[in-house]
Each structure stands twice: as structure tokens, then as C-alpha cells.
Design a binder for these strands. Structure first.
Length: 802
RNA sequence: GCGGAUGUGGCGGAACUGGCAGACGCGCCGGACUUAGAAUCCGGUGUCCACGACGUGAAGGUUCAAAUCCUUUCAUCCGCACCA
């Protein structure tokens, strides 16, 4: 048997596929469409890493499988290359980001081709190319024109290392998503996108998209919807009302103090009335400086009494003190709270520390020890005594509304999206700042507004983007009034280009539209979208927001960007740590590829473990895949003509096909019933069939034909080569075989015989054999026993209680 | 603190959703072929006081029957974190 030369075969087929555009998706086809998308690549300098192989191999298999199943498959790839990773890398190697980007793309593309991935390269997109970001800018303009983008001063997350503001999604846990350093709060001029306005639509999309409950939960959590009331507290001796948000209006009688965020406007507005204003200003300065990390680490409550201002409880007219406290966030609700120490653990802690009264208004618990946050009956609450919490909420809210001192309110944790970055490598804003006209949109016809080349594009502390250095570019005439004006010098965040890219794949070369309505309608939503869990509360929310917006302005015909989402687990190193450049434990997939070949590598990474689970990387076991491939190669020697018919072979073949059909990707909509993405067990099925063949020492030509097609999506090179050698045809033009349930029926089954639940033996029966016959056989195994009870589960097991 | 995930041989992992636990693969042991090794092939491989008993992180429970359901508990990992 000649040895299998994977290098030669793989290169041969890769060039055949490339030259014949084998994986080109057709626009408009009679075949059913299938759009499978994996989050596109951020082309870093070091080439692809194992995580890419883990993430893409499964969808690669699905794409090839669906093609063989007769679908018109769109499986595209592209480059998400704007943003900090590329720019920081370019700064490090002292090249310009554009050069770095195109170099990296070449490396990536080359490596991906060597893995045999079947992308439709004719649809390649690059977010940094003007032809692409023209449309990113266009979408921004639509947002701007609809009032969905606005510039305002705001206190936002700022990364001192990257010298730019960040969104909440970019700084989860108070950590900069890019450099992993701590972020601080800073007052800046911010372009906001009104993402908050889309909270309900995004929540609706979460309900509709088919994904695991835990992913849905974390998205819902991030949006953080909570229903309650806004209550307006009069401030003594002023006409001012302090507005607060609460989910517990029922506890209004238990309010013993108010608390506002240190940054709250109230303080400066009444600076003259406040006797300890200096102390409050110092407190504010300290609080703002504290990074979110430090705030979270410091659990101890702090605060300063605002001397000179008091609030009046609208329910009972009680006069109550107001504090500034940094446990109240500016960004959520109104930045002010009514504090009910008896029924809120944080307020309880604060009240204990500052020796404030604690008034119980809900029965239950022991408030001398801790706050009682559970359910109960209202007490000490004149208007609502005796009511349940729910009823009390209703009644008191109605009362406040009537009085003009409150209203029903729904609040969201999610904030509007701070959308500008003080960095170079991003989409320029198509906006001109004119002293007389304000913010003026560029005419759509002049897009793209290209990013000017800059020698020194490094960020600085000024608070402006580096683009301000491109004087000629910045200084322009106002399109409205013709006076001197200047361009916006900040750029868009790295998430901008990725917030709509799945649409561009549908029509990537269209110069007149981001995609034609016909192609948008034909392809519709991605049928499957896969990627990392880290994007669930970042990219995916932005994507949902933009897509919903585009739907609302009738730019896309379908509401959902994708109908099913799966998240792949991580590849960990041998010791179970996260792999990464920074930890120095990254494995270069290309060395694996060179040593074992693409087919073996693909097989190995799929066979290693579950798609959704994190998996520790090891090369142990890859020998099994290599020797399996050798056996596949050797099947030619075992081939016989098709007159040899064997029930056992037939059953094994259909069993294997069934396993692949159910285990790769299912059409089943009910995710409870679905058992797909089980690539490891599908491969085990291939191996079992191989064992059957080897045991009998032959395979018929037709069996081999089907076997090769079934395995083709996993190991495309070797199967293509064998297929062309034996059948003199291109395997890609064949149809995936169907399994036949009737071929799976066994003529004889073995079932276990138990005595009182203990295994005593095995009997052979025929399917549907009458129960008394089975019982008779079973009792023979057990010898002379008079059974008290017999439990027979048809064709499965018999248990005899003696 | 809140939320989620995971826990099965020496290892990676299976188990048709309550029905013979350990599929498939790695590794290991033995054998064949070889001067020898590599490769390949054949056989074996959960544990133990071995015609039996015990075994799915631990302890209870439900059931004729539990890795799977219930209660309690431990461990590891991962999110979110003062959200009013």
C-alpha cells in the first residue's frame, strides 16, 4: 500500500477549488439558500491562532455538508481590521496601519486556504477599505439624520493607556477590552448613538433568535430592564424636585434619607445654599477619579451629607436628609435614589454606618440584623397598610401620579453607545462642525470620506483625535453656509464596521447601495451565526441595534440579522489556562498543519471535544486521526464489486449516515429536540463504519462511494482525491446520501435480563417479539424462579422481580 | 454577593433523555511481521479480596431500574458586579 502524501493531495485540491471558484454562492438560485456565518477575522500580525481553527472548522463542515445536501450555501469571510488591535500593533512595529492590515490579510488568507476552508472569496470584505466604510459612514448618516446620533458632554469610561473613551460594552468589569488596563470615568465630548431607544426591539430579537438560554439571559441582563416608578421629591425651600427611580415604590414610607451620585447636578445648582459645598466637591473629585475597578473593590459605603438641602416625602410630608454617595451611579436611573434601609441591603449598610433611622414597612425578616428584601404585607404605611407588595406598588403609584409627584417608569441598564474614539485607525465621521450651523452631515454623494494618511498617528492626551494633525483635511467649508468649518476629528469605534457586515456579504461589490434590495430579500437573515461568547454582550447587541434600525428605515427587509446563534468554547492550553499571545502559551496552528496536514488537523480538533465546551489543547490523539486517514486511503485495496450484499454492512452504513445527518446540523426548530454540533460523535461513527469494513475485509464500490461523500465535509482533500481516482468525478457535484430508516432495523436484538435490577444475562430476541416469548427466554436464563413481577420494556430490557 | 457551566477509566470523551455505564480515539500490556527500530496487523485493557462484588465529585431520596429525576453538599472554571 502506497503511503498517503497529504501535502501533495491537499495542495492539488486547494488549487483546483481556487481555480474553479468551487465555493461561490449564487445570487438567486432554485436551490434553497443557506447562509452560514462565523464572526469574521481581526487580522492580527501573528497569523491565525488555534481559536480560529476551533471556531471555523465546525461551520466549514456545515457549509460543505449543506452544499452536498443541495443548498445554495453562502459561507463568506472578511476582515474586521479597523480599531485598536491593528493600530497598536502598527505603532509597535512602526508601520502604517494600512500596510500592516494588508500584510496581515495576506497571511491570514494564505493560512486559511491551507486548512482547506471553503469560503467564497469572491465576497471578501475589508472594513478598512473605502468601498466598505463608505457604507459604514452612510449608516451613521442615517442614524444622524433620524436623530439617533447626537453629540453631548458626558461622563464616560476612559482608558488612560489607549487614550480614548470607551463604551460600557468595551469596558466590562472596569477593564479596557483592548489593553486589559483599568478604565476611569472622565467627562468628554461624546457622540452617542441612541441604543437605549432600541432596548425593547433588542429584547424582542433575543426572544426570537434561536440560542441557548444562558446567552439570552446574559443579553437580557445587559439590557437590564426593570419596571418601577419615578418619584419626584420636593426639596424644602425651593421649587426643585429631586427625581428618583425605584422598583419599590411600595416602600415609600420607609424612606429615611435620599442619596445622589457625587456628580449629580443638584449639588452645583444649589452650591450657594449648601454649607459644606467644598467637602462635596472634594468628594466628587475623589469619586470620579476612582476607577470602576477600585469602586467595585471598595465595598465600604462612603458618602457626605448635603447640608442645607432636605427633601420632603410626598407620602407623609416627612423631612429627610440628602446625601451624596458614590454607591449611586450617575449612569443609571436618574442618578438619585430614595433610600429604604429596612428593605435594601445597600441602604441598610449605609444607614448603619451613618446612624440613620431604619423604618420597617414590609412585615417579615428581622431588621435589627439585616435588611428584609422579601415579600410581605405593608405596615407603618398609612395609605397602603395591609396590602401585599404588588398591590401597594399599584396603589401608591396611582396616588403619586394623581398628585403629580410620580409616574410609572421602565428603566434599562444599557446606556446609549459612546461612539467616538480619539484614535486614528477608524472610520472618519462624515460630519462637519460649523460655528454657525452646528453639526452638519456630509452629502451622501461625497462618501466615502477617506481617512487621510498621517505620519504620526499616535494618540495623545489632548482629548482630540490624531486626525486634527491633518490640517488640510480638517479645514473645510461648511456645506450649508459656506463659512470656514472643520471636520470631526474623532473616528468610529472598532465595532462600527462589524455592526452590519453580514449584509455586505450579500452584495459586496455594489457601489450604489450597501446591498441591493433583491439580494437582501433573497438571502435574508443568516441561518446560522457562530462566534465567541465574549461577543454576546458586545458585538451581538450592536449588531442587533443597527440591524433593527436599518429595518425601521426600510433599508433591510427582515427584522432579525440571524435566526440562530451558537457560541464556540475556547481552546485552552494543556494546563487549562486561556491561550494568548500575552501569556506566551499560544500554539501556532501552522506547525500542526505542516506536520499532519489539513484533513488530520480538522478531524482532530473536531474529535477532541464538544463545540460549546472549552477544550484543553493537546496533540495526543492526533495519531488516531492520521491512522484513520491512512485506512481511508487504503480502502481502494478492500473494494469489491457491488454484487456483494450484506445486511450488516448496509445497516452500518445507514447508521453512520443517520448519525451524520442528525449530528452535524439539524433543521429541527425545537432546540430541545436537536442534537447537532456533535462533530466528535459523527466522527466516531465514521470510525465505527471503518471497523465494520475492516472486520469483514471488504467494502463494495457503492458503499465506498457513499462513505467518501459522507466524510467529505470533514476531510475534503483525501475524499476528493479518492473519489476522482475511483469514480473519475468531482465529489463536490454529488449529492449527500440519504439514510433509510428501514435499513436500520435489526433482525435480531440482544437485550439484558435483570433479576431485581441486577444484570444476569443477555438474550437474543426478534424485534416485536411477543412478550410471553421474551419472558420465557428470560426465565430460562435465570433458571427455576417464580417471578413476582415482570417488567418488560419492548426491545430494550427485561427485569424480573423474584 | 448574584448568575451560569462543568465534574464519568491512566487521558480526550460517549451513553438514543430513566433501561447492559465507559461508544470512538489516545495511552498502556501481550503477540505477529522485522537483524533491529519505525510503520502496520491481531488480541487485551473500569476497579477489587474476581463463577462474585463495587463503580459516573460526596451524602441522602424517588423508582422494578438513576450518570440522567429530587434534596443537601463539595470542588473547579467562567460571566456580572453597589442597576436602586
Amino acid at each position: 500500500m502506497s503511503d498517503y502524501d497529504f501535502k501533495k493531495v491537499e495542495e492539488k485540491w486547494q488549487s483546483i477549488w481556487a481555480n474553479s471558484n468551487a465555493f461561490r454562492a449564487e445570487d438567486f438560485s432554485d436551490k434553497p439558500k443557506f447562509y452560514v456565518l462565523t464572526e469574521f477575522f481581526g487580522p492580527s500580525g501573528s497569523g491565525i491562532h488555534l481559536g480560529h481553527v476551533k471556531a471555523f472548522t465546525p461551520t466549514e463542515v456545515i457549509a460543505r455538508y449543506k452544499r452536498l445536501k443541495g443548498y445554495n450555501v453562502l459561507y463568506p469571510a472578511g476582515w474586521d481590521a479597523f480599531g485598536l488591535p491593528t493600530e497598536n500593533y502598527a505603532l509597535k512595529v512602526k508601520k502604517d496601519p494600512q500596510t500592516v492590515t494588508s500584510d496581515n490579510i495576506q497571511i491570514f488568507k494564505n493560512q486559511l486556504t491551507k486548512l482547506g476552508f471553503s469560503f467564497d472569496w469572491s465576497r471578501e470584505v475589508d472594513t478598512t477599505s473605502p468601498e466598505y466604510y463608505k457604507w459604514t459612514q452612510w449608516i451613521f448618516l442615517q442614524l444622524f439624520k433620524k436623530g439617533m446620533a447626537y453629540k453631548a458632554d458626558g461622563v464616560v469610561n476612559f482608558c488612560p493607556k489607549c487614550k480614548t473613551i470607551l463604551s460600557n460594552e468595551d469596558s466590562q468589569g472596569g477593564i479596557c477590552d483592548r489593553c486589559k488596563g483599568g478604565v476611569v470615568q472622565a467627562k468628554r465630548s461624546v457622540w452617542y448613538l441612541r441604543m437605549k431607544d432600541y432596548s425593547e426591539k433588542m429584547l424582542a430579537a433575543i426572544d426570537e433568535i434561536d440560542m441557548k438560554p444562558n446567552l439570552k439571559d446574559s443579553q437580557r441582563n445587559w439590557i437590564g430592564k426593570s419596571a418601577g416608578a419615578e418619584i419626584f421629591f420636593d426639596i424644602e425651600g425651593t421649587r426643585e424636585q429631586l427625581k428618583i427611580f425605584t422598583t419599590r415604590p411600595d416602600t415609600l414610607y420607609g424612606v429615611t434619607y435620599m442619596a445622589v451620585a457625587p456628580e449629580h447636578d443638584l449639588i452645583e445648582k444649589y452650591a450657594k445654599k449648601i454649607t459644606n459645598i467644598k467637602q462635596l466637591r472634594a468628594y466628587k473629585t475623589a469619586a470620579v477619579k476612582k476607577s470602576a475597578e477600585a469602586r467595585a473593590a471598595n465595598k465600604e459605603k462612603t458618602g457626605v451629607l448635603i447640608e442645607g438641602l432636605r427633601a420632603i416625602n410626598p407620602a407623609n410630608g416627612a423631612s429627610i436628609p440628602i446625601f451624596a454617595a458614590d454607591y449611586v451611579m450617575t449612569g443609571y436611573g436618574t442618578g438619585a435614589i430614595m433610600a429604604v434601609p429596612a428593605h435594601d441591603t445597600r441602604d441598610y449598610e449605609f444607614a448603619k454606618k451613618f446612624d440613620l433611622p431604619i423604618i420597617q414597612v414590609i412585615s417579615g425578616g428581622d431588621i435589627s440584623k439585616e435588611a428584609y428584601t422579601g415579600d410581605g404585607i405593608l405596615v407603618n404605611s398609612k395609605l397602603i397598610n395591609g396590602l401585599t407588595v404588588d398591590a401597594a406598588k399599584q396603589k401608591i403609584t396611582e396616588f403619586l401620579v394623581k398628585k403629580g409627584q410620580g409616574e410609572k417608569k421602565i428603566n434599562y441598564k444599557m446606556q446609549d453607545w459612546p461612539f467616538n474614539r480619539q484614535r486614528y485607525w477608524g472610520e472618519p465621521f462624515p460630519i462637519i462642525l460649523c460655528d454657525s450651523c452646528g453639526f452638519v452631515a456630509l452629502d451622501e454623494n461625497v462618501l466615502p470620506l477617506t481617512l487621510p494618511a498621517l505620519k504620526d498617528y499616535s494618540p495623545d492626551e489632548s482629548g482630540d483625535g490624531p486626525l486634527k494633525k491633518a490640517k488640510e483635511w480638517v479645514e473645510v467649508k461648511c456645506p450649508k453656509c459656506g463659512k470656514s468649518a472643520r471636520r470631526e476629528t474623532d473616528t468610529m469605534p472598532n465595532w462600527a464596521g462589524s455592526s452590519w457586515y453580514w449584509l455586505r456579504f450579500l452584495d459586496p461589490h455594489n457601489a450604489a447601495q450597501f446591498a441591493s434590495p433583491e439580494k437582501l430579500a433573497y438571502w435574508g437573515a443568516a441561518d446560522l451565526y457562530t462566534g465567541g461568547t465574549e461577543h454576546v454582550t458586545r458585538h451581538m447587541l450592536y449588531a442587533s441595534f443597527w440591524h433593527n434600525f436599518l429595518y425601521d428605515i426600510k433599508a433591510v427587509p427582515h427584522r432579525l440579522p440571524f435566526t440562530r446563534r451558537m457560541c464556540n468554547g475556547l481552546i485552552l492550553d494543556e494546563t487549562g489556562r486561556k491561550m494568548g499571545k500575552s501569556s506566551g502559551n499560544a500554539i501556532d496552528p501552522i506547525t500542526v498543519l505542516a506536520q499532519y496536514g489539513a484533513d488530520a488537523f480538522r478531524l482532530h480538533i473536531l474529535f477532541m471535544g464538544d463545540y460549546e465546551q472549552n477544550t484543553a489543547w493537546t496533540l495526543e490523539g492526533i495519531n488516531g486521526c492520521t491512522s484513520f486517514l491512512k485506512r481511508v486511503w487504503g480502502l481502494k485495496q478492500l473494494m469489491r464489486d457491488d454484487s456483494t450484499v450484506s445486511k450488516a454492512h448496509e445497516r452500518a452504513l445507514h447508521q453512520m449516515i443517520k448519525r451524520a445527518e442528525l449530528g452535524i446540523i439539524s433543521d429541527e426548530k425545537d432546540c430541545e429536540k436537536r442534537e447537532d454540533f456533535k462533530f466528535n460523535t459523527v466522527i466516531a461513527g465514521f470510525m465505527e463504519f471503518m471497523n465494520t469494513v475492516r472486520k469483514s475485509n471488504y467494502i463494495t464500490k457503492e458503499e465506498l462511494r457513499q462513505y467518501l461523500i459522507v466524510m467529505n465535509p470533514f476531510i475534503p482533500h483525501i475524499t476528493s482525491e479518492l473519489y476522482s481516482q475511483i469514480f473519475n468525478k468531482d465529489i463536490l457535484s454529488e449529492r449527500y446520501p440519504e439514510y433509510d430508516e428501514s435499513k436500520l432495523i435489526e433482525t435480531e436484538i440482544e437485550i439484558p435480563v435483570q433479576l431485581c435490577g441486577k444484570l444476569k444475562g443477555v438474550i437474543k430476541i426478534q424485534p416485536n417479539e411477543p412478550q410471553d416469548a421474551v419472558e420465557k427466554k428470560a426465565l430460562q436464563v435465570l433458571g427455576g424462579i417464580t417471578p413476582k413481577k415482570i417488567i418488560y420494556i419492548k426491545d430494550k430490557i427485561i427485569n424480573i422481580i423474584g
